[in-house]
Amino acid sequence: MPQHYWPLYEVFVRSQQGLSHRHVGSLHAADDQMALENARDAYTRRSEGCSIWVVKAAEIVASQPEDRGEFFEPADSKIYRHPTFYQLPDGIEHM
């Protein structure tokens, strides 16, 4: 019988106080329910999370480093998008 193994899943956890899910690692599981349970056992043992996402690694679409130029450099040069570009008068708060 050809050997094939439990597929790789990437794990993202949003902690109690967190605002977004962070990538914490990966694991292997045969199905989605197992992946969620394995993630809970491996990555939230010390009550580290309140929400878990698991995604099959094969489903993730990632930007490639070769594209770094087109993808990201144009934003670097649009400095007016950054808050530090603007001088605010003294006395203005919450901005």
Partner: peptide, 15 residues
């Protein structure tokens, strides 16, 4: 598990 996970980011397979 964490370490196999780190190794696999280099393009190898845990198995």
């Amino acid at each position: 598990l964490y370490l196999y996970s780190a190794a696999e980011t280099l393009g190898c397979a845990r198995e």
